[in-house]
């Protein structure tokens, strides 16, 4: 069952993905198909099963509070699409 176009648009908004109308139509069909497929999981009663987040379940991995060298500023900024040698630059963030 196709995913409603409005849902596709809403999800694209959440994911900050600009989609063409063709893509919206295509994803509506394809995601609908995938969701129909994954519905097979509903066959299983998992009420007594703990979710498994990690493949190997470790606990208590911590590091000591010890300084490590930071990157030189030029390296930190080197891949930025727009920067002024001190800051990353972005289009004005409107606050009000």
């Amino acid at each position: 069952m196709a995913l409603p176009l409005d849902t596709v648009k809403k999800v694209a908004g959440l994911a900050r993905l600009q989609l063409t109308d063709t893509e919206i139509e295509m994803f509506s069909q394809q995601l609908g198909g995938i969701l129909d497929y994954v519905a097979m999981l509903d066959e299983l009663d998992t009420s007594a099963v703990e979710p498994m987040v990690h493949a190997i379940e470790l606990t208590n991995v911590l590091r000591d509070d010890v300084l490590a060298p930071s990157l030189p500023r030029a390296d930190a900024l080197q891949n930025a699409p727009k920067q002024d040698g001190r800051y990353f630059l972005v289009p004005a963030i409107l606050e009000g």
Binding site: V66, L67, A68, P69, S70, L71, R73, A76, Y87
Partner: peptide, 18 residues
């Protein structure tokens, strides 16, 4: 990460790492 937490607004982007 191991970067410093010192308050340092006058020198932006010098306490960063990957």
């Amino acid at each position: 990460c191991g970067c410093s937490t010192a308050f340092n607004p006058d020198q932006p982007n010098v306490q960063t790492c990957p």
